[in-house]
């Protein structure tokens, strides 16, 4: 694998080189402009985090307060610490569950010999990906409902419980409900990329293994998994940066007053303070914290991948 990596070319940036590449540069300009306009210009708003921002006064006349807003978040504010905990917990649960299920699903699906059923299963499995969260949470609510919800019905039929359980009032379950809902929604979609990677594995390897007497499981373990290992690592690295994007909609829509201590994520906190309370400074400070932690996480993951000699992002 390593030999395949493109050798890095070191070209010195000179006017001559720029003139030579002007077409390429021109072609990329619109996209650079796009990124600048929509991804970097909004960062100007970060200045709010260091101000006592009032929409009336704008960026220029609002009072600068240094790190007061960060102090509000981190000093004597158990709420925000809890919010970070929830975000991290749900992020990690989502990460692990989505990886495990997507890879397992791809491996199992790969073992289906008949093309027709395989295609059918694959198509059905990624349909939920296209549903919006509000519909997904509606389905989750219905499934977990105490009023003819399928889970309660099944549990009662099998005499596991004698009274319906209101799952959405039990705090320890909430993170797992969120995680499993995400699994239901995204497993099919996430597995597409692994299935593609699997098809790139040379059939010779499987044949050779068969001749050596390897069974299905052995081939899965010794050929398929190592074959898609680079893909797994790259995706893992990308997703580690997303851990703090544990979600907003699903927690927001499934949560209720009782679940508040376990359901609030950083995004919900930002919405609550930034938008509902019109305290834009606190909202921005919390947002900055999230971005900074995400960047740190990516770097950490990347350098540990580098140290382990595995695939990495940069």
């Amino acid at each position: 694998m390593k030999a395949e990596r493109i050798k890095e070319v070191n070209v010195k940036m000179t006017w001559k080189e720029i003139v030579k590449q002007r077409k390429l540069i021109l072609l990329s300009l619109p996209f650079v402009a796009y990124v600048l306009l929509f991804n970097y210009v909004p960062l100007v708003g970060w200045v709010m985090a260091f101000q006592k921002y009032k929409p009336k006064d704008g960026f220029f006349s609002s009072k600068f307060v240094g790190f007061d807003n960060f102090e509000f978040l981190f000093v004597n504010n158990p709420d925000f610490i809890r919010v970070i905990r929830n975000t991290l917990a749900m992020g990690v649960i989502n990460l692990i569950l989505s990886f495990a299920f997507a890879i397992a699903f791809a491996l199992v699906l790969n073992e289906v010999v008949h093309k027709g059923p395989k295609k059918l299963v694959q198509t059905i499995s990624y349909l939920p990906h296209f549903l919006s969260m509000i519909i997904v949470t509606g389905i989750v609510r219905d499934v977990l409902s105490i009023d003819n919800g399928i889970i309660n019905d099944i549990f009662i039929k099998f005499n596991l419980i004698d009274k319906p359980i209101n799952f959405l009032t039990i705090k320890p379950l909430f993170w797992w409900i969120v995680g499993l809902s995400n699994v239901w929604k995204e497993t099919g979609w996430n597995s597409i990329i692994y299935l593609a990677a699997i098809t790139a594995i040379s059939p010779d390897l499987y044949e050779a293994a068969s001749i050596d007497g390897a069974g299905r499981l052995r081939k899965m373990w010794n050929i398929t998994l190592p074959g898609i290992k680079p893909t797994i690592f790259i995706l893992l690295l990308i997703n580690v940066g997303n851990v703090l994007n544990a979600g907003f909609e699903i927690q927001y829509l499934l949560g209720n007053g009782l679940l508040q201590p376990v359901s609030q994520t950083i995004d919900i906190y930002v919405l609550k303070y930034g938008i509902s309370q019109a305290n834009y400074s606190i909202g921005t400070a919390a947002g900055i914290f999230k971005s900074v932690v995400s960047v740190i996480l990516i770097f950490l993951a990347n350098s540990s991948a580098k140290a382990a000699g595995e695939e990495r992002l940069f």
């Binding site: 929409p55 938008i275 309370q277 019109a278």
Partner: peptide, 24 residues
């Protein structure tokens, strides 16, 4: 809050201290 953040409002709204504060 969304309306305040956008800075554009309909002609009539229900008064709130946030709107007043935003100079809207």
């Amino acid at each position: 809050g969304m309306l305040i953040a956008s800075g554009e409002y309909p002609d009539f709204m229900n008064w709130s201290p946030e709107l007043q504060d935003a100079g809207a």
